[in-house]
Design a protein around this nucleic acid. Structure first.
Length: 853
DNA sequence: ATACATACC
DNA sequence: TACTGGTATGTAT
């Protein structure tokens, strides 16, 4: 109906080329004029021709689909409808409205950062990127139709005065670290989706928040700097700028969204604001802190699941938030009028196919489900069904292990064979470097080529063993390249891009495939929305399933299937006897000390006192977090005001409880046998293979369409890196911080040579010479005695502390440093073995876990 | 296993 | 001048 992008003016011009204006800040534009300019700028180009071709392919697909549709009989449809209904009933039964999921998203992130740092830009249309491609644009530029993923030269035609600022990834990454520290205060296990957005589960936070005193919910307006370890190059603004939020939006429609509820004193003095105990207030507080800390605004969506939260975060963007009540009615009502394209996972093509079937909003989805179930693949329609019911993932999970790593580059035109080979080699060198950083080895090498006509092709070769060195990778890549060159016959390949990818990772130790299933189910505890259902619907699919819907969408459905039959049987022995008893003792000791210490002290605090709540407990969650992959920041968010209570849950009563909580999946493992428990953790760590779960809003706020994101990837990678191989570092950091914030820097670079796993004492941070775990444990034991005492004496804080950014900040800094160090080459323990070698792995994580329990 | 497509940031 | 890069995953063969 309304949506005309695709159907645009009779001449049916490329739906794929037309402006995408369903992005915040782009409403009410002169689409026709803009599209005309876009077309004029593109017409006749090779790019355009290729888009044209691809669009025709899509159209053919749709035609086929329509033919299939025509063959469907009433009877078949009825049968399908019955199946759908049955499935709906099951899904409905499993609906979980108990979680409070939040999706936070920075507003025009890269552009906002640049504007913040260069006032000149504030009132001008600007974008971040290059003449070839823009990553994002500010709201002023969006009024001209300038948006992410648009080439700069076209943007310039739309807006001649557009200022294009080169991308400065390091800066965004630094800001990202800052906001992640705040995220961690609300959900240490938050899941970052990119540098500027994340999913958080506020459920637990809210529970605790109810008992928080007002002082813990009070936050100041920006004064000087954020934390006390404020060495940061904070762009400390002049005091009087305090209440100015970045002038990103002249008409911030949503700023009014903020509930005025609290007594913010418009005054300027030592202004502060008290936030309430509701989710809205908690989220508003989080956004407030983000703004105070970074001078940048964020928007958020609050809903019972990720799918909806994502959509909601876009609703009052910029600088706003929206909460969808956790009731079936609210959800259904909301979903009904939602355009399908707004749903993460439904892109241009899926939208077009659905539109062809008369489906443009989610209400239509529900109405046409029987038909859709016959025209789309099972995976696809299952997802659509869930969407139509407003279902989505109800628990946030950390990153997964990467499945591939690649590097690709676009260039002028490369037609000379020699140059092609040498370029290929360069790529392999880069890739090998990256592989080494993460200590990965993969069996499949894929070469990607794009010719000057934008036609893409990929050629893969799977080897019998994992490789990681330049020579090995290049050996495979060049064969693939040669074959292509030869096939092209006499003519040369006229390339505009080349890429090399490696996948099929194997653990470096043994060359067995990494990780396996189990992992994905450990997290069972928190049921996913669509749990336990999914009978195999016999597929009546008449059609060759149209490929719709991305993987991440099938979330629940598939996960469930996998979860079934997962028995937890694995956890058999592990060897290290001494280690375990050691940790048991250490743990008990720690707890005892904590108790004795009464854990009560007030937070000395004025700004952000760096109060470290009982390390033991708060690390409990924290470690898990870091273990999960990233954000060391979360490693020790000292937010939890009632750590001990929490701790006892996991059996911290000074004794080992009958069930242990896995620091990776956070599941309670029903055993007291540490061997079993270790085994469990081993598996979690080696294979944390969970269904990825990236919900992203279709097109809407797809700022970082570009380069922006690949950076994020880097970040994530290093995070994972940390998790896998450097779990110990998290611990180090924790202890170090409590010890002395300023020491972090020097303490961190715990490098070691690239040969074999190296053990690093989590307490003193010194690399241990011995590989012998017994010896190592003994050493740690000694260090521990001192550290724990010191720490508790000097830094314990009240259980009721306002979250302090200090420690997490320091941690992040530490991590950044170590990351940098890694890049520099000084990596910590990076042996050619990456997925932590059996030895190292088994030790690291376990050490931490037990230590903290 | 391989190739290509879709999607997301 | 001129339309990215990185990762995951679905579909088909």
């Amino acid at each position: 109906m309304e949506k005309g992008v695709a159907s645009s003016k009779g001449e049916g011009f490329l739906s794929r080329m037309a402006l995408n204006d369903n992005k915040a800040g782009m409403e009410g534009l002169d689409r026709d004029r803009i599209n005309k300019i876009i077309m004029e700028s593109s017409k006749g180009s090779r790019f355009y021709e290729n888009e044209l071709k691809r669009e025709q392919q899509v159209n053919q697909r749709i035609e086929k689909m329509m033919l299939q549709k025509a063959k469907i009989t009433e009877e078949q449809l009825k049968k399908a409808q019955a199946q759908v209904e049955q499935m709906v009933a099951e899904l409905e039964r499993s609906r979980d409205l108990s979680r409070l999921i939040v999706h936070v998203d920075m507003d025009a992130f890269y552009a906002a950062v640049e504007m913040r740092d260069c006032p000149e830009l504030k009132d001008k249309p600007m974008a971040v990127g290059s003449m070839s491609m823009l990553s994002t644009s500010n709201y002023h530029a969006r009024k001209f139709g300038v948006r992410a993923a648009m080439p700069g030269f076209i943007a310039k035609k739309l807006c001649p005065n557009l200022i294009i600022v080169p991308i400065n990834f390091d800066k965004y990454r630094a800001v990202s670290e800052e906001i992640r520290e705040i995220f961690a205060d609300y959900d240490p296990q938050f899941q970052p989706m990119s540098l500027d957005e994340a999913y958080l589960d506020f459920t637990e936070h809210l529970e605790r928040r109810q008992s928080w005193p007002e002082s813990s919910r009070t936050h100041r307006f920006r004064t000087s700097s954020t934390t006390k370890g404020e060495d940061q190059m904070d762009v400390s603004l002049e005091p009087e700028q305090r209440d100015l939020s970045p002038v990103l939006f002249e008409d911030s429609p949503s700023s009014s969204t903020c509930s005025p509820g609290s007594e913010a004193d418009g005054a300027s003095g030592g202004a502060f604001e008290v936030f309430g105990t509701s989710v809205e207030e908690a989220v508003r507080e989080m956004r407030f802190r983000i703004e105070q800390k970074t001078t940048l605004t964020a928007s958020a969506g609050i809903a019972p699941n990720t799918m909806i939260a994502k959509v909601c975060s876009d609703k009052n963007k910029p600088n706003g938030q929206y909460r969808l009540p956790s009731t079936r009615e609210a959800v259904m009502d909301f979903i009904q009028r939602l355009p399908v394209r707004k749903v993460s996972g439904i892109g241009k093509v899926s939208e077009k196919m659905l539109n062809a079937l008369g489906v443009s909003s989610c209400s239509h989805l529900g109405q046409q489900m029987a038909l859709l179930s016959m025209l789309f693949s099972e995976t696809a329609w299952h997802h659509l069904l869930e969407v139509s019911l407003g279902l989505g993932s109800t628990h946030i999970q950390r990153q997964e292990e990467r499945k591939s790593m690649s590097t690709e580059r676009t260039f002028k035109e490369l037609s000379k064979v020699e140059e092609q080979f040498s370029f290929c080699k360069e790529l392999c060198e880069d890739l090998a470097g990256d592989m080494k950083k993460e200590g990965l080895k993969g069996k499949t090498v894929t070469l990607k080529l794009k010719n000057v006509n934008f036609e893409v092709k990929s050629r893969a070769l799977t080897l019998s063993h994992g490789v990681s060195t330049v020579d090995e990778i290049f050996a495979a890549a060049k064969d693939l390249l040669k074959t292509e060159i030869d096939n092209e016959g006499p003519q040369p390949l006229r390339l505009r891009l080349m890429g090399v990818r490696i996948s099929g990772f194997v653990s470096s130790d043994d060359k067995k495939p990494l990780q396996r299933s189990i992992i994905g189910f450990l997290q069972q505890g928190k049921a996913d929305s669509s749990q336990g259902m999914h009978q195999k619907l016999e597929k009546e699919h008449l059609i060759t399933h149209s490929s719709l819907l991305p993987p991440d969408s099938l979330s629940s459905a598939q996960k469930c299937q996998r979860q079934e039959g997962v028995t937890w049987g694995r956890g058999l022995e592990t060897g290290e006897e001494p280690k375990q008893s050691f940790f048991q003792r250490a743990q008990a000791k720690r707890l005892r000390l904590q108790e004795e210490n009464a854990i009560t002290q007030e937070e000395g605090h004025g700004e952000n006192a760096s109060v470290i709540t009982s390390i033991g407990t708060d690390a409990e969650e924290g470690v898990g977090t870091s273990t999960k992959a990233h954000s060391t920041a979360s490693d020790l968010q000292e937010k939890d005001p009632v750590p001990l209570a929490e701790a006892s849950t996991s059996g911290c009563g000074l004794t080992v409880s009958e069930s242990l909580t896995c620091p990776v999946c956070f599941e309670q493992v029903e055993t007291t046998d540490l061997n079993v428990f270790n085994k469990h953790i081993d598996q979690c760590l080696s294979g944390a293979s969970r269904k990825p779960n990236q919900y992203t809003i279709s097109d809407t706020e797809s700022e970082l369409d570009l380069e922006g994101d690949h950076k994020e990837c880097e970040v994530m990678q290093s995070n994972r890196d940390d998790l896998q191989e450097h779990s110990l570092d998290s611990l180090q950091t924790v202890l170090l911080i409590s010890d002395d914030n300023e020491t972090l820097t020097s303490g961190q670079p715990q490098s070691c040579d690239d040969n074999g796993p190296v053990l690093i004492c989590p307490v003193c941070q010194l690399t241990q010479d011995s590989d012998d775990l017994t010896v190592f444990n003994h050493h740690v034991d000694l260090c521990l005695n001192q550290e724990v005492l010191h720490e508790l004496r000097g830094h314990t804080s009240s259980p009721i502390n306002p979250p302090s950014a200090l420690s997490s900040k320091a941690i992040d800094r530490a991590r950044l440093l170590s990351t940098q160090a890694n890049k520099g080459k000084t990596k910590r323990r990076d042996s050619p073995s990456s997925p932590p070698s059996k030895k190292a792995k088994g030790l690291g994580p376990h050490t931490i876990d037990k230590f903290f329990r």
